[in-house]
């Protein structure tokens, strides 16, 4: 049912693709503000979101709108000013065993080989060497890096390193895979192909995913639902169900329905992004004056 009316449907509940039941992730009226020398800055303001088992949800918004702030709060690496976040029914305060994070920055350990990198979370959990390497092997295959087990990150391309990071987080076997612009540093082609990989993995493991991104194509290609954020303070502008058939591949990028979703989201985002650019220009003007 990918009709135009459906596009405009604003939903706070689960997507059609979700299996229902208790949400795995609940973000409940969350606020984050920072004390800065210039005063209080509210980065995330009153955001709410439920994510169900098996769902793929993207959070999209212009640069500086508070996406990483939200990511770090869900991951338990940043305190919450107001509201509550719960994972698998447990309140988040500190990194939760059900959440695996993939970061925006380059994050592989340069002194470890691919397999040692991927086995890292298992090593932390105290899994014996033989077993953890064997289990790591499974996830290395999953991201298509077999044959590169003994290589060091410096010998791999950026896209391969990002796949190592994803495999490492998958080896943690999180109920919720949380990713912050994992493909931001990659070129468009690699990004699309990695997107296929992620879709395939998600289907295979029935993995619940929350993806932070500022790339509209990527969001539409991968998601069941997309949450659009406003620019500063970061609020929920709206949530869109993506009613495209699954299994999907990157070929879907060329379809009409896909184009309509992209246009739709861009329409919403443009206002926010231009607001952001105006703000930044004003700030630059202020700095120029003595």
């Amino acid at each position: 049912m990918s009709t135009a009316t459906n596009l405009h449907q604003v939903s706070r509940k689960g997507a059609a693709a979700a299996t229902g039941g208790q949400p795995i992730l609940t973000v409940d009226h969350v606020v984050k503000s920072f004390e800065t020398p210039q005063g209080k800055v509210t980065a995330v303001d009153d955001m709410s979101l439920d994510v169900r088992q098996g769902e793929f949800v993207s959070v999209i918004g212009p640069s500086g709108c508070g996406k990483s702030t939200l990511f770090n709060m869900i991951g338990g690496l940043l305190s919450i000013t107001e509201g509550e976040i719960a994972v698998a029914g447990e309140r988040v305060n500190g990194p939760h065993p059900s959440i695996g994070m993939v970061f925006q920055e380059e994050s592989t350990f340069p002194w470890r080989t691919v397999e040692e990198n991927v086995a890292f979370p298992l090593e932390i959990q105290g899994v014996g060497k033989a077993e953890r390497l064997e289990r790591a092997q499974h996830f290395i295959k999953l991201v298509g890096l077999q044959g590169f087990e003994k290589r060091f990150p410096a010998e791999l391309s950026g896209g391969m390193r990002q796949r190592v990071a994803i495999a490492r987080t998958l080896a943690f076997q999180p109920k919720l895979l949380l990713m912050d612009e994992p493909f931001a540093a990659l070129d468009e082609q690699t990004r699309l192909l990695l997107g296929d990989k992620v879709t395939q993995i998600q289907q295979e493991l029935n993995q619940t995913v929350v993806l932070i991104t500022h790339n509209i194509t990527e969001a539409v290609q991968l998601s069941d639902r997309i949450l659009i954020m406003t620019y500063r303070p970061g609020r929920t502008k709206r949530i869109i169900d993506i009613d495209l058939p699954r299994p999907r591949t990157s070929e879907i990028v060329g379809s009409d329905a896909f184009g309509r979703y992209v246009a739709e989201i861009w329409n919403d985002l443009r206002e926010e992004a231009s607001q952001g650019m105006q703000d930044e220009e004003a700030l630059a003007q202020q700095r120029k004056r003595p």
């Binding site: 690496l77 990194p95 695996g100 994070m101 970061f103 932390i124």
Partner: peptide, 11 residues
């Protein structure tokens, strides 16, 4: 970032 990775895996 490497420390944050460690923390996120509950080291």
């Amino acid at each position: 970032i490497l420390m944050r990775v460690g923390q996120s895996f509950r080291a």
